[in-house]
Design a protein around this nucleic acid. Structure first.
Lengths: 306, 306
DNA sequence: CACACTCATGCATTAGACGCATAGAGCTTA
DNA sequence: TAAGCTCTATGCGTCTAATGCATGAGTGTG
């Protein structure tokens, strides 16, 4: 065994020392440690040599503690106990936990999915504190810098971030949102009539074409994007009483339309891209944390039972 | 390596973990630990396996700490520091020490020898507290029970107590103490005239003959002990203006005579037993304690420079 | 004085940690 | 997209050192 700490003491001798000081008896200590008597005797010899103190001194009634041993005994047990606590798998106790969990995501996405989780967690973990963090340009780097524990996003990491984990929260088709009195609201929606409409686009990153532009391109069609928004929250305001058509994921679309003079239209099958998914992302640094694991489970449980 | 603490973790891995968490880099940790890179990598693998956590997770910029590792890092360093402090030889610092030292011995012996030590220690260890404890029948068992740290005694342990250590404080012949107006004060002191006198005896243990009885017996003489005292302190009171002769160790005799109407007479050479010694006794449990060692040294230094 | 109890030690075995060399994995740069 | 660089993980042989068994030594007790 070559492993040494400062000053070359074998730390593994300390638990043996603890029992020796408690029992003051080599044979009994050996029994309690499930070691042979000679092994413990040798360990004691090593301890004596490396600590430079007899530790156990002979008396007419057997061994007694040296001053040094008395001093050590009062301190060793709590230290070893703390080390044991530190080393053994931490148990997450919802009843007493007071952690702070940080989550980021777009306003609308959070508004849709987060309340269910909060309701769930408030009941199960009364001490838990939750915090939403304003999403920066790249929520993945926020995870990477450990600024948030979770990111709720429909985007994909630019490069294959192998330090991120994710799980699908929800998958849905795209729907069209338009004013109730929009001409297309009552006419058949075809690829051609869709492409001919005036479009609104929500672009989180602020650049690049939307997924619909790619689908249209495959059919040899193009569309005109007359308004780019950086957030979903104001879509309704720009859509109501205008000729703009927004193409949004279903849940967001339903939310936008709610209580507004707007209507939903399904895309023609040939225009429907592959369904859109939202993901919960987290960093691998928290992947094995029992608390985070538990919270992730609650997240998905909350989504299953809204 | 079979040495295990609770739950089978090799404690010697912890200092390696400490450096790993600090460096977040296996190669640098290896360098700092003066180990090979593969050895540290293996150690990390063992830690990961036994703690059930990745500890260091890969990132685009190298390793980062897992939640568990972050938690461990904040606690591990102080714990290891405390263990190191506990394990390394305690340094006795006279300037700050506030220990309590207990000493026992007979009143007169303490009165003769103890003040020098107190004067000495008060100057060198201002925080040290000293306490004299009333001597019980057997001061050696007081040492054995750790009721006192030192015993000042002229006696010898009944059975060869191998858990006791001692060192000679002072060695001296026996002298006779008698009233100034005692007939023997002005007459030649011979074995016969000594034996014929009326004797006083201080017997600490309360039983058995004194050493003089044995010396006289070797010359075919006997003496009559008319008064047995259990303490030296009152010898003068019983000796002044009486016909009693006390035979005492020189330093005690000189002290008894001081300011009294008493005189000292030397024993005839043929009556002089081997010189009497006083010892400082201590228990082997404190033999290696740096503090006790230091105090012992001061004790003898004080005696050499009264 | 012999017995009983306990700790220390000689000896052979063996487990496992180490270093060296190398393979593998991931990120950067051309 | 591929080559190169950096760093970690692993296969292999070596060797230290801890262990258990058996025994000796020291000490207190009947």
């Amino acid at each position: 065994m070559r492993e040494m700490n400062l000053k070359g003491l074998d730390l593994n001798l300390l638990p043996i020392l603890q029992v020796l000081l408690q029992e003051r008896h080599v044979s009994r200590a050996a029994e309690q440690l499930e070691m042979s008597q000679p092994a413990v005797s040798r360990a004691l010899a090593r301890l004596r040599r490396e600590l430079g103190d007899p530790l156990l001194v002979r008396t007419s009634r057997g061994f007694d503690l040296s001053s040094r041993a008395q001093e050590i005994q009062t301190q060793l047990s709590p230290l070893l106990q703390q080390l044991t606590d530190l080393v053994q798998s931490p148990v997450f106790d919802p009843a007493t936990d007071t952690s702070l969990i940080r989550l980021t995501g777009l306003d609308l996405e959070l508004a849709i999915y987060f309340p269910r989780l909060v309701k769930h967690l408030r009941r199960l973990v009364p001490g838990l504190r939750l915090e939403t963090v304003r999403q920066e340009e790249d929520s993945f780097s926020m995870l990477d810098r450990d600024e948030v524990h979770f990111s709720l996003s429909g985007l994909q990491p630019a490069s294959a971030e192998n330090s991120l984990h994710r799980r699908v929260i929800d998958t849905m088709p795209l729907l069209c949102v338009m004013a109730e009195n929009h001409p297309l609201a009552t006419q058949p929606l075809t690829p051609v009539s869709y492409a001919a409409a005036a479009h609104g686009l929500v672009s989180i990153t602020g650049r690049g074409p939307g997924s619909m532009d790619k689908v249209l391109a495959q059919l040899g069609l193009t569309r005109q994007v007359m308004l780019r928004l950086s957030s979903f929250m104001s879509v309704a305001d720009f859509c109501e009483d205008t000729d703009l058509v927004f193409t949004l994921p279903q849940r967001l679309a339903e939310r936008v339309v709610r209580n507004r003079r707007l209507c939903l239209r399904e895309l023609p099958d040939t225009l429907q891209p592959s369904p859109v998914s939202f993901y919960l992302y987290w960093h691998s640094r928290h992947h094995h944390d029992p608390k985070m694991l538990w919270i992730r489970e609650q997240f998905f449980a909350a989504l299953e039972h809204p």
